[in-house]
Each structure stands twice: as structure tokens, then as C-alpha cells.
């Protein structure tokens, strides 16, 4: 078995100094307040000009790309079962506007984005990317949620796309995918795996019927 990974607990909202200590590949558990937001929220807040649904102090500054498996009970209580992230690369186009509007410095999601996006958009805003683990450790993350202080835009966007504010304790695990310098753990791992790919394909040739946009460069990504 492999050795243990470096593990830290991070309090939210996170200071720049605290974020500066995080290296890619570090395991992180979170304490404090964060909120969910994905394409529905980005479109409404940025493109439709609605702005943020609440103040920073009410939402936190860590944005989770997530829809919880949750229900609002008839008496108004929130029942959150499991939470896991949704793939983040689809949301890259909104992020520059989002960082300006929201003041977030942590994005939590699935699969990360490209290092180009990290350098161009994350680094100037002093933001890092944490990836969920698995995916996903929905039940472990559900355990870490201690309170749901609010749900915004549920009527406008539906339960899955609404903004869920979550107060959490030892919420995780996550892994640092991008640090303040814009490095990407996934791209580092891809680069390590790439040299072995050619031998897998030895003796094969491209399919008789090609497809538009197809590449034979297996070091490319699909995102």
C-alpha cells in the first residue's frame, strides 16, 4: 500500500496566507461556511444581471459545484442526504465574471479545469480549486454538513440548481487540484501516464469510418 498523503484542515473563509500553503495533491478538510452554485446560478447572477442572492457573510466565499440529494420538508426543515460535485469544466466561461461578482477564492468541484483557465482566471483572483474525491464520497460529505442556514433561488431555479448554504465541520476529503500558482494535479498525472499510451495501441489502426473532429493524439483531453 502507498504511504499517507499530506492532510490539512482549512477554516473558511480562507485567508490568502492559508491558501498559499496548499500544494497540489494535498488532502483538505473544510470547516466553516460554503455554498453551492452551478450553471443556473451563474447564468442568473452574471448574464441576467441578478447579482448575488445574498451578501458574502451569508454565503461564504467557497463555491461548491454541486446539487445536493436533499429535500425541503413540509415544515420547512432541510433534509440533506448526500452531496457530491458535478463536472466543473462546463462552467469555465462564467468564472471570470463570477470571481469579480462573488469574491470567492475557493472553487470545489469534479475534475478540475485546464491549467490555462487556472492561469488566466483563477490566479489573478487569488483562487484555488479543490476536487472532490472518488467521485464521490457523497455520504461522508453529507455527514460533514452541520446546518443549512439558507437556500436561495429555489423557486427560480429548482432544488437542484438552487444556492444551498452549508455550514460544515471536517467536511471532506478534497484534494488540491490547483494551487495559487495555477498548477494542475490532473495535468501532472496525465503527463506521467502519457508516455505509456502508445504501446497500448501497437498493432491497431484508426477505424475505417472516421468521425468529424477526431484526433489520434491520445495525450489530448476530451474537456
Amino acid at each position: 500500500m502507498a504511504g499517507p498523503l499530506k492532510t490539512v484542515e482549512l477554516n473558511l473563509p480562507a485567508s490568502r496566507e492559508a491558501l498559499a500553503e496548499l500544494e497540489i495533491g494535498t488532502v483538505v478538510y473544510l470547516n466553516g461556511r460554503l455554498f453551492t452554485a452551478r450553471e443556473g446560478v451563474y447564468k442568473r447572477a452574471i448574464e441576467d444581471g441578478a447579482g448575488m442572492p445574498a451578501a458574502n457573510v451569508d454565503l461564504g466565499t467557497a463555491n461548491f459545484h454541486c446539487s445536493p440529494a436533499a429535500v425541503i420538508e413540509p415544515d420547512g426543515r432541510f433534509n440533506v442526504g448526500a452531496v457530491t460535485a458535478t463536472a466543473s469544466f462546463r462552467f469555465a466561461k462564467w468564472l471570470d465574471g463570477w470571481f469579480k461578482l462573488s469574491g470567492c477564492n475557493i472553487i470545489i468541484g469534479k475534475g478540475g479545469m485546464t491549467s490555462e483557465i487556472y492561469r488566466d482566471v483563477f490566479v489573478p483572483h487569488g483562487a484555488i480549486y479543490l476536487t472532490t474525491v472518488g467521485y464521490g464520497t457523497g455520504a461522508l460529505l453529507g455527514r460533514g454538513i452541520k446546518d443549512v442556514p439558507g437556500v436561495y433561488w429555489k423557486d427560480e431555479l429548482g432544488l437542484a440548481q438552487a444556492v444551498w448554504v452549508l455550514d460544515v465541520e471536517r467536511f471532506g476529503p478534497f484534494i488540491v487540484e490547483s494551487d495559487l500558482a495555477g498548477n494542475s494535479l490532473f495535468e501532472r498525472e496525465n503527463a506521467k501516464i502519457a508516455p505509456g499510451l502508445a504501446r497500448l495501441y501497437e498493432g491497431t489502426r484508426p477505424a475505417t469510418l472516421r468521425r468529424y473532429g477526431e484526433t489520434d493524439d491520445k495525450t489530448d483531453e476530451v474537456i
Binding site: A2, L5, V27, C66, S67, P68, A69, G81, A82, V83, T84, A85, V133, G134, Y135, G136, T137, G138, A139, L140, L141, G142, R143, P173, I175
Partner: peptide, 22 residues
């Protein structure tokens, strides 16, 4: 590490009777 976390996650799901994945 990822596989170990998932094994723990299955236990948490069964103990809490909550969905294993969000």
C-alpha cells in the same frame, strides 16, 4: 487514497442510511 475514501463512504452510507453519492 481515493479507493480507501470510497470504501469508507460505503460504510457511512449504510450506517446513516443516506445515499452513497450525491
Amino acid at each position: 487514497f481515493v479507493i480507501q475514501a470510497m470504501l469508507e463512504n460505503y460504510e457511512a452510507a449504510k450506517e446513516d442510511r443516506r445515499a452513497m453519492c450525491g
